[in-house]
Every structure is written in C-alpha cells, then in structure tokens.
Design a protein around this nucleic acid. Structure first.
Length: 679
DNA sequence: GGGAATGCGTTTTTT
DNA sequence: ACGCATTCCC
C-alpha cells in the first residue's frame, strides 16, 4: 500500500514514551527490558521502519531473532507500516545467519562451502555410532546414552564450562567416564570435520571463531551491519552474546531486547546473565524499560506478578495495564486427565458460541505429550487444532530419509546421511553400511563405485546400483530442485511402503515436501532450511481461508511471544508442571516458575489453570502424581487472585438398564435365534 | 553379520 | 510405551 511519495509514520501517536525512546535511539548500545505484552515486537518493528525512513539502507540492518518465523513476521509488519524496503533487512536466527556467513568463508576454517548440517537426531546418531565403535556400549559399563552425551557436548559448546566441570555439576554419576567422554568428544569433532558436517552448535562456534580470529572478515561483516538488533536476549547464551558483540565491533550500534523474567532456555546454555552483563561490555549503554502491558487484563497481570514474586532473583518490573476486564483466572480442579480434557472441550464449544474464534484459543503444556489425551477428545468433539512443539514435520522418519538421499548428493562425505540411507536396504546393517561408506570414501565420494564388482553377488547389490543411479540424477545441478526432490521421493516410495503401514499419510507429507521444494533454486539452501526449520516447514499450512480455522496446542516454549484471547494451562501437578526432574534440583524450579510466568502472560482475557487431582506417572510403578503444583501452592493469597472451580463429569449413561426382578424373555424368540445361529 | 525376539531402564523444553 | 542392548537363530 506504499504510495510513491515517502510515507509518514506518526511515531508520537503510535508509541508510548518509553517505546519511542527505544525506537528513536540511533547510535550506541541500547538495552531494552520489555515485560510481556509491553509492545516489544512493536518497538522493534517501528525501529526498523524508523531507521529505514531515516535513510539507512535496509541491507545494513541486521535483526537477529529467536525463530525464523518471528523475524519474518516483524519484517512483514515493518513493510506494512512503511514500505517494501523493510523486506530487505537482514534477518533470521543466529543459526541461519551463521549458516549464511560460514558458507561464504568456509575455506578459512578448513571447510567446504558445500557442508551439510546435522540436526539434533543426526548428531545423536553420529554420537551413537562412535559410541558403539569405541565399544562403550557394554552392559558392565553404565555409559551415558547418545542423547545425554550430545547434551553434554552441546552445553560444553554453548557455555564457558569445561567438560569436566559439566560432568561434575550435571552428571556426577558419570564421573568415572570422564576420560572416555573426552575421548569421544575428540572423535566426534574429528569425524564431523572429516565428513564436512556441522551440527547446530558448530554453526555458532565456527562463526565466533571466524569473527574472532579472522580480522578482515570480522571487519567486513561488522562494517556491513550498521545497526544490529537482537530479540529475546534473555535466551541467548554466552556464545551468542559474544557473536553479537563482535558483529557490533565496528559501528557499536547494538540494541538488545529481552526480559529476564522470561528466560526459559537455560538447558541450552542460555542465561539472563547476558542481560545483566550487557552494560559491562558496553559501559555507555542506555537502558529502557517497557512496563505497560497492552495485552492482558489486570486480574491476569496480578496473578502473573504474584507468580513472579516467588522468584529468588528478580529485577525490575511490575506490570500494569489499562485493558478493561475484571474476570479473575479460574483454577479448575478435575479428577483426572480425562475430566480435564472434557472440561476444555466443553468450554471451547461455549466460547465458540460466544463468538471467540478458534484462532484465539490455545492450550499450553509443559511437555508435548501432556496433551495426548486432550487430542483424542478434541477429535471426538470435532474441534480442529494444530500442535506446536514436540515432533516436527522435518523430524519424521520418512522426511529424514528423503532428506538424507539429497544430502548425499550435496555432500557425498556426509556419513550420517549414508548410514541412514543404507540401512533402508534388506540385508544391510551397521557393519555393511560402514563397509560401503568406506568404499565410497576411498573413491573420494564418487558413488559410482557402488556399481562396481566389489558388491557383485551380494543380496543388496541391486539396491546399491539403483541408489547410485538416483544420486547421479539428483546431483545434477542443471535440473530444478523440485524435480530432484521428486526424483528422490519416487525412488523412496517402494521403501516407504515396505517400512510403514500408514504409508498413505506419510506419502502426503512427502508431497508437501515436494511443494516446498518448488520455492528453491539451490539444493544446499533447501537442505539448510530443512535443518534450520524455515517457518513454511510445518505439517499443515495455516491456510488463508477463514473457514479453515483451528485452535492451538503448544508447549510453553513454543508459545513464546504469542498471545490468545483464552489460554488453558494444563497439568498443574507436581511432576508435570513443574517437570519431575526439576522438583529436586536447585535452580531448576526457578526456571519452571519463569516458564509458568510465560504461560500465564500469554492470556489476553481468559486464563484457565487446570489441575487434575490424579495423573498417571510413567514408569513401572503405576504410581500417580497427586500433588498440586508448587508453582500454584506458593502463590500468596491465591484465593484472592483466582476463582476456584470443581469440575465433575456428568455421569455416563448406564450401559445396562438395571431393571428389578425377572424381565420376561421370549422363549420362542430365543429358540429361533438358537436355531438360526446354532448353539 | 543381520534381524527378530526379549528384557531392561526411562522420558522436558529446541535452534 | 520406547529406545537400546543382549541373545539366539538364520
């Protein structure tokens, strides 16, 4: 809607004084502390517009966000209030930004520009392989599992701590294995390099290395971005903070935005310490606080503030609002999971009657599986929903299989991808796969050796020949990406049929993947986006059709930055929310509380807190979690802040009408029945 | 050496 | 209920 004349924006009218201070700030370092619903996104959006309007070339602005989705959303909004120039602003996550920069300068670090990216499960598989190779998988030895090992390595990369320190603090029971783990880490690092693959942490580690050790690159990159903004700064880790500082090392114009109370990613090495330390790195930094909330009603904020009151370390903030409304949050006690689900379904149907669109309703949970029972009930009640968090589209086995085929074509040294593909064949296990991979390696990645004599007579010889032909076709850069992806899917289809009974459903996913591929011109870009999860890689596209409406189920982590008219928070029991492992860990409960704070501050008008009296505990003991969440119990004057409600199921209609006395049966009818059916 | 069957210990959150 | 190791059979 941009007019040919430069559009004007009434910043004074659109923003409050604190927001405006942040938006109009130009030179220097700036820390913005923004409570939930305080217009943090709005502030960033307007600042982008303000800079562009002030004549800054959009390519020279860098906006680093927590997800790709949020940066795209912000730039979309900026171009709405200003014009299309804002689309040219450089944006994305730290990881996607690192990916772009590293491809350009890979050689400096001894990498090929065609490196492939390991997602979490690829990385785990590689660790698992090395673990078996080294013989650590013996029963006598209680050795950590691949997932645990990778978490350890990941924390090592993302914090300043050494492996020894982390084992001591996080996994003291594995202390006897310290040397073995160090050895494994060396092997993992070496193997990744040999295979030209980078895991998520490597993207950050190598970007920092590139900027810190290569002066010319640092100067060039940092000079490119005159203004750098980092969103969700409380959820960045030490490594990311270092990168941000290096990026600002030429112009010194760095604005970080965050909320210490909403720091919920410490398991990933994030720390709100970054916020606190920001003025130490940038002594002249200005600080702006955004405290007015534009999202929620006062009763919801009162409750949220009360939750935060129990935090050991708290700073600033006391949220206030002018949003009208005086319904207090509802605390609902239900007997169990099933009753909880029934309550939610019933309430949703009522809300719909009241005119609240499904898109304005969400159910938030601590862990993705907590909504399993609810999903069944929602389906029964014909309420459409989408689920966020937990297993994503690109993590499904069949998608990963096809992606692995393409990865081999892009980087024939990617052993993890080879391994995955080779195990699809009948008669091929880990040993055979290793043997084949070595053969290809010896031929410097030319997979045509698979057609050679080495494998003649083996059960899988035909499979290898066909695979090698497919790779020939898929690696042809002259062919459009979409066609190459289609080729891989066509090849994979028979294997899919053999492996999965629910093959039609999975086939539809693969078709969706083919559709996504049409937007790409480079296979590497496509694969990077699959690994770094571009927003369009969701199971079902939101759909522009207003008729096609759905409500949201989400983990609290995935609900960050979002808001709904009505929010249900489920499973507020000790052991579910907060999670079981946090119950006994000092400090962990602090994060659970912030997580709860994030959950409740997503609500605009209605907040339902659900508390089943009994939930099955998983594990062999058949135990139950019966205790109410300490996060609720600790709230001072809870009875003044919420309304209590008990929800009882209507009694089921009895299957057997219980009649008194002998009901007359018809002997003749019975005889006929027996006659006809026999016996 | 591969693969099915068995038996053990176990689960958060995500780029 | 599921990953992961071990065991046994081809």
């Amino acid at each position: 809607m941009a007019e040919s004349t430069s559009p004007t924006i009434d910043f004074e009218k659109e923003l409050n004084p604190a927001q405006r201070a942040a938006v109009e700030a130009r030179e220097g370092a700036h820390l913005v502390i923004a409570g939930p619903g305080s217009g943090k996104t709005r502030t960033l959006v307007y600042r982008v517009a303000h800079l562009v309007l002030g004549g800054v070339a959009p390519e020279r602005i860098l906006l680093l966000t927590f997800t790709r989705k949020s940066s795209e959303e912000m730039l979309r909004r900026a171009s709405q209030i200003l014009d299309e120039r804002c689309r040219k602003v450089a944006g994305g996550t730290f990881h996607s930004f690192a990916n772009r920069v590293l491809r350009r300068h890979a050689q400096l670090l001894g990498f090929d520009a065609g490196f492939t990216i390991l997602d979490r499960s690829d990385a785990e598989d590689l660790v698992g392989l090395l673990r078996t190779e080294a013989g650590y998988n013996r029963k006598e030895r209680r050795f950590p599992r691949k997932g645990t090992i990778l978490s350890l390595f990941s924390k090592r990369a993302n914090t300043k701590k050494t492996l020894e320190e982390l084992i001591e603090s996080d996994y003291p029971h594995f202390e006897p294995e310290t040397e073995a783990l160090k050895e494994l880490q060396r092997k993992y690092t070496a193997r990744k390099r040999a295979q030209q693959v980078l895991d998520y942490d490597d993207l950050l580690v190598f970007l920092r290395q590139l900027l810190a050790e290569h002066e010319t690159v640092r100067r060039k990159v940092a000079a490119t971005y005159r203004y750098v903004m980092v969103d969700e700064y409380q959820d960045t880790n030490h490594l990311q903070a270092h990168i941000a500082a290096l990026l600002a090392s030429v112009h010194g114009n760095l604005m970080v935005v965050g909320d210490d109370a909403q720091s919920i990613y410490s398991f990933r090495g994030a720390s709100f310490q970054n916020i606190i330390d920001f003025p130490k790195i940038f002594p002249g930094a200005k600080t702006t606080m955004l405290e007015q909330n534009y999202r929620s009603t006062q009763p919801i904020l009162d409750f949220a503030n009360a939750v935060l009151d129990n935090a050991k370390e708290k700073f600033s903030k006391n949220l206030f609002t002018e949003v009208v409304g005086d319904d207090r949050p509802q605390l609902i006690t239900a007997v169990d999971d099933y009753a909880q689900s029934r309550f939610i379904c019933r309430r949703i149907l009522e809300l719909r009657e009241e005119g609240v669109p499904l898109g304005e309703i969400s159910v938030l949970c601590r862990a993705a599986w907590h909504t399993n029972a609810l999903e069944v009930e929602l389906a029964n009640a014909n309420i459409p929903f989408r689920k966020f968090g937990g297993l994503r589209f690109v993590e499904a086995a069949h998608i990963k299989d096809v992606a692995a085929l393409l990865k081999i074509a892009a980087n024939p040294r990617d052993g993890a991808a080879w391994h995955r593909v080779l195990l699809l064949f009948e008669g091929v296990g880990p040993k055979t796969a290793q043997m084949v991979i070595q053969a290809v390696d010896k031929a410097s990645g030319r997979w045509q050796v698979l057609r050679g004599d080495t494998f003649r007579g083996r059960k899988y010889a035909g499979d290898l020949t066909r695979l090698s032909r497919l790779l020939d076709a898929v690696s042809d850069d002259e062919v459009p990406v979409a066609e190459r992806v289609e080729g891989a899917v066509r090849y994979y289809q028979p294997l899919l049929k053999k492996r999965h009974d629910d093959f039609p459903r999975r086939k539809r996913d693969l078709e969706a993947l083919e559709g996504i591929a049409q937007r790409y011109r480079s296979l590497e870009r496509f694969l990077s986006d699959v690994a770094l999860e571009a927003p369009q890689f969701s199971r079902r596209d939101p759909g522009r059709d207003p008729e096609d409406e759905w409500m949201t189920l989400s983990t609290v982590h995935s609900a960050k930055g979002l808001e709904w008219h009505t929010v249900f928070v489920v499973n507020l029991n000790a052991g579910h929310f907060p999670s079981q492992q946090s119950l006994f860990e000092e400090g962990a409960l602090e994060e659970e509380r912030r997580l709860f704070y994030v959950a409740v501050t997503r609500a605009k008008r209605n907040l339902y807190l659900l508390r089943p009296e009994e939930l099955p505990r998983r594990g062999p003991y058949g135990d139950t979690f019966a205790e109410v969440s300490p996060l609720l119990e600790e709230v001072l004057d809870l009875d003044k802040l919420v309304d209590f409600q008990e929800f009882h199921l209507e009694p089921e209609t009895e299957l057997w009408a219980d009649e008194d006395g002998e009901s007359g049966s018809d002997p003749e009818l019975l005889a006929r029945i027996q006659d006809y059916f026999g016996e």
